[in-house]
Design a protein around this nucleic acid. Structure first.
Length: 941
RNA sequence: GCUCGGGUGGUGGAACUGGUAGACACGCAGGACUUAAAAUCCUGUGACCCUUAAAGGUCGUGCGGGUUCGAUUCCCGCCCCGAGUACCA
């Protein structure tokens, strides 16, 4: 027997002292500092880093971090060299909005917010290697974000090689063979020129042309302009026609903007999804966002010569069913197509459309509207005259902004044709009921369709494509929904773009001049002339003369490569690369990434894009950055309500009625701070202090208690339902918080925060503590050989936790820990051979209490984190008997203990001869007896 | 509308490949200890029926069907909730 006197252990479980002690120990001893060279296999566990907001962490934020920390700690025990870093996505709008209101520099608020976050994170006992922290707003970091921007500027996408290449390679080809034979992803308006012509271009002509090929480029394009935020927004930052942050209106506006040629990677981004282990809904969202459709582009010549309308269609086989063309009201040909008779009608329709906001236009998809231009196009295959209409159901931004309308096959075209009385032509004998609705079928043989009459869908498509190619009137085409990403923001708190302007053309600054620091400004608002805030910086010129780009980079810039910066240790960061090549070759990619699904089409798509680009240039080694990804569910708020009694006039009194009695009164519900409610029972004294007006409140109680109402809502201050992890830790400790967040349910499911069950988890830890101590709370450990039952309890949990962690089922291991401790308590087990292994198994979940017990057991402090996970021995679980459930006609009737050495035939005999079974048989012979060894017996009568 | 999740006790949830539905925990009820309270421990707890009790029976995983010796799990049809997306030609 071991006894230990003074110190923490002579008392009940003292989580506060224990947790403080070990958090300090880990920090002082740099327990979780990772080396970049190791004999061990690597494992990279990454969390989506937070934006450090002023509100601090609430109880929902750490959910994913706890899961990833358990995983990281588990992998260490399993002998992996684990990279588990944390940092801050510290550029962003809220700090800047705050700066605008208060004049305080965003760097300052950001710094303060970060220290709050850090304090809160440290309290939870994460095993992060803080020596590798990154902050996207740190010049030492954004230097490399700017550097990557420069690489993009200096690259083009070669479709033959299917990868990005240095722009010099393109220049060389222009110099030797001109533009002929170049297959590149570029703007549409690229010039055709010979080598001689290229060589005779002026420098600025050359630069202008190259800009059309660069992977980041400046171009006049239609952007989402948000006046309230004073900036453009990317498509993924606009939701339902309003800004995602703040919900301000967004309008379409033409502006000169930096863009990223992400469309060059559309197909690789799509293909890559098949190679990574991500949640299916997330992959689906990315597929939809990329929106690949295979079809054909067809050119319809105009009747009066001079020009044509190009359309994109996925059903070129329906071309003989086209009875009109529709172009978007914004289409560039609208003016020239409009005849003088139709001018008034068209103009009134366009002004009508403009008045409709984006939101109305999306909401109202039922009403059919449009106007006839007065002009006709010709079907390129048979010369049929086809009227050209405009309508707002055709979007300017997709395809060519023009469609060929086939009313018999497309419901929208059908409605339009019915409304304006246009012909509906059947094209397949398989189409049904086209008097009443369109039938998009591909079944049957073509009719009314010229040379494809009698063909099937399969046969018609290639025949049409080759015919169209022959006539020079169309070709097969693949269309993507995804657009190039706008990359500039007219804001202050972001990375400056390392570009200056000379003769109206952009030029990169020298690499040696990085980082281009964010200049000081007097105010964080646009200038009087409407330029972005950087326009306020005085004397901010390149070489004292040339203007810098005044936009800054968008929020996603810094987060599109940060996982590589973590690979670089503090020493590595002195080197001249974002991370040393050897280090990137060691860590390669992220093995497990945990974060929210809200980043599906933003961060996760841009990161994959930049990763592929960096790989093309040879800076990184993997095509996909995040091998496995898990979405943690959202933790919603759980609001509590009190019910204020109303008097006859409907005015609020100072009486409050308990939830189940409220229907007997006229009441109005009132949010009450969830922190003064426990298990939905209101703490009356604290309620009286909650607000001055409640000081003399009276209560109508049920069973002596005031029961509150409950509703699930978003966690927010105004609903008084925010639960701060600090409060939970104060009351129960970090280990309880960690276990409880996992115990709440499956990681990926969204669920409301509800502290109702937290006591059970806390009790479990106290029981666990007691296993090591006697009634006087003195350490009491036995070196005796454990019994079979004790070994069995231990080895059950060893295996269970392994299985659970590998499938990210953290909630079920917590239950199993409880079962194990209950069993050991029952067995009064205090044997070292059992408890020490149990300490290791529990360590990833509850690192503080286990460290304390580990050292109380006489082990070296801190060594627990790198201990060896106990080896599961199935021998301990072997049973010689099993209580077979005996079913009769599928209904479980009883259990019979039968030796597991018996085979099916013997079991059957044994069961049928049993007295109780005989009762069910009632003298009859069973029709069939199913025996599954070790599982079940089913008797069919 | 389309796509993807999900419907299990009073509550959170468990049941991993078709094999004892409701583990574990909360809550609730009763009891022990205590002058008392807290803490702790013990017992019970899906619904209904029968019974003094022991025991027993019927129903039961959103609804309706199917496959199977056996279905929360597989198949078909429907209802409800949540998320994403939306005139994408």
């Amino acid at each position: 027997m071991y006894f230990r006197t003074p110190s923490i252990s002579t008392m009940d479980y003292q989580y506060k002292e224990i947790e403080k002690k070990w958090q300090d120990f880990w920090a002082e001893n740099q327990t979780y500092k990772v080396e970049n060279n190791s004999e061990k296999p690597k494992y990279y566990v990454l969390d989506m880093f937070p934006y450090p907001s002023g509100a601090g962490l609430h109880v929902g934020h750490p959910l994913g971090y706890i899961a990833s920390d358990i995983f990281a700690r588990y992998k260490r025990l399993k002998g992996f060299n684990v990279l588990h870093p944390m940092g801050y996505d510290s550029f962003g709008l809220p700090a800047e909005q705050y700066a605008i209101q208060t004049g305080q520099h965003p760097a300052l608020t950001t710094e303060q917010n970060i220290s709050t976050y850090r304090r809160q994170l440290d309290q939870i006992g994460f095993s992060f290697d803080w020596s590798r922290e990154v902050r996207t707003s740190d010049p030492e970091y954004y230097k490399w974000t700017q550097w990557i921007f420069m690489q993009l500027f200096n690259s083009w996408y070669n479709l033959e090689a299917e990868k990005a290449e240095p722009i010099e390679a393109l220049v060389k080809r222009f110099e030797v063979t001109g533009s002929a034979g170049i297959k590149a992803v570029s703007d549409e308006d690229v010039l055709s020129f010979s080598a001689e012509e290229w060589n005779s271009f002026s420098e600025s002509q050359k630069q202008e042309e190259l800009l059309k090929y660069r992977l980041t480029y400046l171009k006049e394009s239609t952007v989402n302009w948000c006046a309230a935020l004073g900036t453009v927004l990317a498509n993924d930052e606009v939701k339902d026609g309003v800004s995602e942050r703040g919900g301000y209106p967004v309008e379409q506006k033409k502006m000169m903007q930096w863009s990223m040629r992400i469309t060059a990677y559309a197909d690789r981004l799509l293909q890559g999804l098949d190679t990574i282990d991500w949640p299916e809904p997330l992959k689906e969202m990315q597929r939809n966002w990329i929106g690949k459709s295979t079809g054909a582009s067809v050119v319809f010549p105009l009747e009066n010569g001079g020009g044509s309308i190009e359309v994109f269609t996925t059903r070129v086989d329906t071309i003989f069913g086209v009875s009109f063309l529709v172009i978007a009201p914004e289409h560039e040909l609208v003016t020239s197509l409009t005849t003088s008779e139709q001018k008034e009608e068209i103009e009134s329709y366009i002004s009508q459309t403009k008045k409709k906001s984006e939101l109305d236009r999306m909401a109202d998809t039922k009403t059919v509207s449009g106007a006839f231009t007065g002009s006709y196009a010709l079907n390129p295959l048979d010369g049929t005259k086809i009227p050209v209409w405009i309508a707002d159901y055709v979007l300017a931004g997709y395809g060519t902004g023009a469609v060929m309308a086939v009313p018999s096959g497309d419901q929208r075209d059908f409605l339009f044709a019915k409304h304006f009385n246009l012909p509906i032509i059947q094209i397949l004998d398989g189409q049904q009921d086209i008097e009443h609705q369109a039938d998009p079928t591909k079944e049957g043989k073509y009719i009314n369709s010229g040379f494809i009459n009698g063909l099937t869908h399969q046969e018609a498509i290639p025949a049409l494509i080759s015919k169209l190619e022959e006539l020079n009137a169309g070709k097969a085409k693949i269309q993507y929904r995804m657009r190039d990403a706008i990359f500039g923001r007219q804001r202050y708190w972001g990375e400056p773009v390392p570009v200056y302007f000379k003769d109206g053309l952009p030029h990169l600054i020298e690499e040696s001049e990085l980082p281009l620091l964010l200049p000081e400004v007097d105010k964080y608002l646009p200038t009087e002339t409407g330029e972005p805030p950087l326009g306020r910086a005085t004397d901010w010129k390149y070489n004292g003369e040339a203007s810098y780009e005044l936009s800054t980079m968008p929020g996603w810039a810094g987060s599109s490569w940060y996982w590589y910066r973590y690979m670089a240790s503090a020493e590595d960061r002195k080197e001249t690369a974002f991370a040393p090549k050897t280090v990137i070759e060691y860590w390669k990619d992220v093995d497990l990434y945990i974060g929210g699904s809200e980043h599906a089409t933003g961060h996760l798509l841009y990161s994959r894009f930049w990763n592929k680009f960096l790989k093309d240039l040879g800076y990184v080694v993997e095509e996909e950055p995040f091998k496995k990804l898990i979405n943690q569910g959202m933790i919603q708020g759980r609001s509590n309500f009190v019910y204020r009694v109303l008097d006859e006039e409907g005015k609020g009194t100072n009486r409050f009625v308990s939830y189940n009695l409220k229907d007997e009164y006229k009441t109005t519900p009132l949010h009450v701070d969830v922190n003064i409610v426990e298990n939905d029972v209101l703490d009356l004294d604290r309620f009286k202090k909650f607000r001055a007006e409640f000081e003399n409140a009276e209560f109508i109680l049920e069973n002596g208690k005031y029961v509150c109402g409950v509703e699930v809502e978003k966690m927010s201050k105004s609903k008084f339902n925010v639960v701060n992890p600090d409060d939970i830790i104060e009351r129960y400790g970090a280990d309880t918080l960690r276990l409880y967040e996992m115990f709440l349910g499956p990681l990926e499911q969204s669920k409301p925060w509800n502290t109702n069950g937290i006591e059970g988890v806390f009790k479990f830890l106290r029981k666990f503590w007691k296993l090591f101590h006697n009634d006087k709370f003195e350490l009491s450990i036995s070196d005796e050989e454990p019994t079979k039952a004790e070994y069995k309890a231990l080895h059950k949990i060893i295996r269970k936790v392994e299985e659970d962690i590998e499938r990210f089922s953290f909630n079920t291991s917590v239950s199993s820990f409880m079962i194990c401790v209950n069993e050991l308590q029952e067995l009064k087990c205090n044997k070292r051979k059992i408890l020490q292994d149990l300490v290791i198994v529990l360590a990833p979940y509850a690192p503080h209490i286990t460290e304390e017990l580990w050292s109380l057991l006489g082990n070296r402090s801190g060594a627990l984190s790198y201990a060896q996970y106990p080896k599961f021995n199935p021998d301990y679980l072997v049973e010689d008997e099993f209580a077979y459930p005996i079913s009769v006609n599928g209904k479980m009737r009883m259990n019979l203990n039968i030796s597991l050495t018996l085979e099916a035939a013997d079991i059957e005999k044994l069961v049928l001869s049993n007295e109780d079974v005989q009762k069910y048989l009632d003298g009859k012979n069973p029709k069939k007896v199913v025996v599954v060894k070790g599982r079940i017996v089913n008797i069919v009568i």
